[in-house]
């Protein structure tokens, strides 16, 4: 069997790493999730005076640009580390942004040694092998069977030694098959950041983070005319609701107003601009409020879920 090409390093954008760490601290327990990004090919050629034929080797650098995190472990695989495709489908966006592929997955677990566990190895292996055997008609296949297959594993472990010290450790691995034997090989994690020192890096880096995908719950209609009708009806209602939401967002920013910035009305340009700006700020503020409120509701629901889970588990 041919060996997998080695990664030179694994790159991650600063904000992505920061959000990953933030996610892992704020979660009450261990979490996992998927990593997305793109792979750059770098060709190194070594010219030496001694050898007549210059040798060149191709190296890959996967760059993590976005992630999807679940609120617990075992979110897309079973205890044995085998992939659970329906859960994976639910986690993945239906239409991925161009040039974004699934690179691998991460696990954030607290107060544990920074070594891959039994299950983490199994998950990496099944993620790698499953994508190779996926049916091309499968909706997952465009995302899951890129070249190279998803083989990045990011392991985070944070520990709280005292109230004043939080330690966040992370290690990146590449699952690589060499002469048939797969192994998780540690790779250096390169954090791509904004700043003068990173300028050249950043300009060479395409920050592809698509707008978060918000799934609209679509009920699958029953058989027969009636079912189809009702599902059609529901779809129409959903569409109308969506349109209404979008309208609410653009209220006060009609295209007509933009015309006032040109022509004879341009005299009032500054006032108009200020008005638009002020309204926009107001909208942003209300948006922030809405986010805050919904976050509080989510937290409340999560706490309720925890209590219910503990009740079931008898540890109330």
């Amino acid at each position: 069997m041919e060996d997998d090409a080695p990664f030179e390093k694994i790159a991650i954008s600063g904000p992505t790493l920061a959000s990953l760490i933030q996610r892992s601290i704020s979660s009450p327990c261990d979490i996992d999730g998927l990593l997305f990004g793109h792979v750059t090919r770098v060709t190194h050629s070594s010219l030496s005076d001694d050898s007549s034929s210059p040798s060149s080797s191709e190296l890959l650098i996967p760059t993590v640009t976005s992630l999807i995190s679940s609120s617990h472990t075992l979110s897309f695989y079973d205890p044995l580390g085998r992939l659970h495709l329906p859960s994976l489908r639910r986690l993945l966006p239906p239409s991925p942004a161009p040039s974004t592929t699934l690179l691998g997955f991460f696990i954030a677990r607290r107060n544990t040694p920074l070594r891959p566990s039994m299950r983490e190895f199994a998950v990496s292996l099944s993620l790698l092998s499953q994508t190779l055997t996926l049916d091309p008609k499968d909706p997952l296949s465009p995302l899951l069977s890129p070249s190279p297959p998803p083989s990045v594993f990011l392991l985070l472990s944070s520990s709280l030694s005292s109230l004043s010290f939080h330690t966040h450790e992370y290690r990146a691995f590449q699952l690589r098959r060499r002469s048939g034997d797969p192994a998780l090989e540690p790779r250096s994690l390169d954090v791509v950041n904004i700043g003068p020192a990173f300028h050249s890096q950043y300009s060479a880096f395409s920050p592809n983070s698509p707008f978060p995908w918000l799934p609209v719950p679509t009920e699958v209609g029953g058989e027969g005319e009636k079912g189809r009708e009702s599902s059609n009806c529901m779809r129409r209602v959903a569409k109308e609701q969506q349109q209404r939401g979008l309208d609410a967002c653009s209220q006060g920013f009609e295209v007509g107003r933009l015309s006032r910035l040109m022509g004879s009305d341009a005299a009032n340009y500054t006032a108009e601009m200020e008005d638009l700006y002020g309204k926009m700020l107001g909208k942003l503020e209300s948006l922030a409020r809405a986010v805050e409120k919904s976050s509080a509701k989510i937290l409340e629901q999560e706490n309720r879920n925890i209590k219910l889970r503990w009740k079931v588990a008898g540890s109330d």
Partner: peptide
């Protein structure tokens, strides 16, 4: 062997981290 459960999900199966000398021990494989 470190046995890792999840107190928030006590119904879930545990995971195991083996000692550093046994990094090549891959039971499922």
């Amino acid at each position: 062997w470190d046995v890792i459960y999840n107190a928030q999900f006590p119904m879930a199966a545990p995971d195991i981290i083996f000692s550093p000398e046994d990094e090549d021990f891959l039971p499922f494989l």
